[in-house]
């Protein structure tokens, strides 16, 4: 086996990719999000979805939920690399613990008249999406659920006059009485 002339070992391993949801509890201080994002871009990790908000303002704690894809080795690296950042308290892999609930919220704007408008409303009802804005030729639906449900709803709206979508990204929490 010959590789190009280089001092680096250039063959990549081809383990299958996995998608994991990570919950990261951080000190809410200036630059903390830049640190986390910089880690992902700097080390070439993927971010499929990222959700951040302060969760306990008196303790200056924020919770970051990251959905990422990589080989098992890379996922393990990501967790360790996050964990060793100074303002990071804890990293929990919601996919490994397995007992977690994931939700995302989307607002979906659909424009149309006549049959397609009626069909959009009917589907929204089936998906428990709420109408939060309406004109004679448009709706904005609000839908929550796991990401695949939201994607499915968006796909269904496409032929019915989908104009635009705004998604929050995934928030996740463990089941049962314990905190993270």
């Amino acid at each position: 086996m010959n590789q190009p002339a280089s001092a680096y070992f250039l063959e990549e391993r081809h383990d299958p990719n996995e998608t994991h949801t990570l919950s990261v509890l951080v000190q809410n201080e200036p630059g903390v999000l830049a640190r986390v994002i910089g880690l992902f871009s700097g080390r070439g990790y993927n971010i499929d979805s990222l959700t951040v908000s302060e969760t306990e303002s008196h303790k200056h704690l924020s919770r970051i939920t990251i959905v990422t894809t990589g080989t098992p080795t890379v996922i393990e690296q990501i967790k360790h690399q996050l964990d060793r950042m100074i303002p990071v308290y804890r990293v929990v892999d919601m996919t490994i613990t397995g007992r977690s609930i994931e939700r995302e919220l989307a607002m979906v704007k659909v424009r149309g008249r006549g049959d397609s408008r009626v069909e959009a409303l009917r589907l929204a009802d089936a998906f428990r999406a709420r109408v939060i804005d309406a004109t004679t030729e448009s709706f904005v639906f609000e839908i929550t659920g796991n990401s695949s449900k939201i994607s499915q709803f968006i796909d269904l709206m496409r032929p019915l006059g989908l104009v635009e979508v705004s998604r929050t990204g995934v928030a996740a929490i463990g089941r049962g009485p314990e905190g993270m």
Partner: peptide
């Protein structure tokens, strides 16, 4: 020992 193609890095 060093037979190979074009250099990359």
């Amino acid at each position: 020992a060093f037979a190979g193609g074009k250099a990359l890095v």
